[in-house]
Structure formats: structure tokens, C-alpha cells
Simulated scan of single mutants.
Amino acid sequence: MTLTAHRQFVWASPLTSANEQPPSAKTAASLTSVLRACADSGAQREDLPVILGLSRKRDTPVLLRFLTWSVGSSRNEAARYEATLRSAERQRPAAVADWWAAARWFTARPHVVVLLMLADVPGSLARRVGVLEWEVAYFRDQAGKERERVRRFAAEVVSLRAQRHGRRACAGAERDA
């Protein structure tokens, strides 16, 4: 729930049951009206700013520790994905060259074993090339996602620290007044 000067916005994800099924239209309408009533009731509280301030004061240090850990964890994951990506990129040209060498052998002296090496079956050269192609795309995508998580987590840490320092400065100014 986000409060603005004179308008209240409520966002809720789609309602689903424990087995991921949507509720009936009547149930969804009832739940939505109950949730809206709860949000309206909470927004009417005169002490809401005090409650939210105390909640932020209590939760911010824990959230900062979690986000700091998340930044490190995501950096490690991104590094692991990037290392695996580099490995797959290094192996791919050799695997393709091996497949072409087997193809030349097959055209020079056709044999069923060489044909199996060229076919897309488990353990074949073709399968290895296909797996490496998939790994390159997958690990590049995953590394990018982890780098984006690092960016978001780090931005949140900076934001929370700035808010915390701002609240401290405001509290100091109130005491001085």
C-alpha cells in the first residue's frame, strides 16, 4: 500500500489458492473488499506515521545485513556463471572442430561408429556441441541476471543507508530545536 497526499493506491497480486487455482469470482470479490477495508482502516490511523517510523527503525539494520549478504552472494553466483560461461566458450570451437573432423572421416570412409559420433545421441560429438551452445546462452543469461540483482541490491543498500542517515539528521535537528 502506498499513501500519497489525498489518494491511496493498493496493489495486490492475483489471488490464488494453495494449489495455484484462481478463486471463484464471488470469493475474489469478497477477499478484495476485505483487504481494501483493512487498508482503509490502517490508513485512517492517526498514529500510522509513528508506527511506520518505528517499524523502519527496527527493520532497517536487519534488512541492511540481509541485502549486504545478498550483494556478496549474487556477486559470487555471477562470478561462477561467468567462469562456466568462459569454459563453455573455450570448449565450443574445439567441439565443433572435432565434429567437422568426424564428418570428413565419415565422407572418406563411412562407418556406423563415426555416424553415431555425428548423430545427436547421448555421448556424441553433435550432442556435445549442442550442449555447449545451450550452456553459453544459459550461463550468459544467468550471469546477466545475477549482475542485475547485484545492482538492485546495492542500490537498495545505498538507499537504506541514506534514509537512515537522513532520519538521524532529522532526529538531531528536532532535539536541537
Rank of each mutant, 00 (worst) to 15 (best):
D40H: 01
S70G: 13
C38K: 10
L116Y: 08
A137I: 09
L67H: 00
R36Q: 04
S24N: 11
T107S: 04
F106E: 07
S159L: 05
E77H: 06
A154H: 10
A83S: 10
D59K: 14
A25L: 15
E148S: 14
R56H: 11
A88Y: 02
S70I: 03
V71P: 03
A155W: 13
T32M: 07
R86L: 10
L63E: 06
A25Y: 05
L64M: 08
T107D: 08
R152K: 14
F66V: 15
E156H: 03
A119I: 03
K57F: 06
R45M: 01
A103D: 02
L160I: 06
P49D: 00
T27V: 08
S87A: 11
K26T: 13
D59V: 03
L52A: 09
E146Y: 00
V34G: 07
V158D: 05
G123H: 01
Y138C: 15
G53N: 09
S33I: 07
P93C: 11
E133F: 00
S33M: 15
L85E: 11
Y138I: 06
R86W: 00
V112A: 14
A154M: 10
E148L: 12
S24E: 07
P61C: 01
A137S: 10
F153W: 12
R151H: 13
S30V: 01
V112K: 07
R161C: 09
W100K: 12
R151G: 08
I51E: 00
E146Q: 13
L132Q: 05
A97W: 10
G53V: 04
V136S: 07
W134G: 01
V71T: 12
P122C: 11
A103F: 10
D141S: 14
Q44R: 02
P49N: 00
A162C: 15
A39P: 02
D141R: 12
V158I: 09
S30L: 08
E77Q: 12
L54A: 04
S70T: 15
A155Y: 04
R65K: 07
L160E: 03
E82Q: 12
V114R: 00
G144R: 04
A39K: 04
A143E: 07
N76P: 08
K26V: 11
D59G: 13
Q91D: 13
D40S: 06
L31F: 12
P61N: 01
L115R: 15
S124Q: 08
F106Y: 13
K145F: 00
S74Y: 01
K57N: 04
F66D: 14
T27G: 05
S55K: 02
K145L: 06
R36C: 01
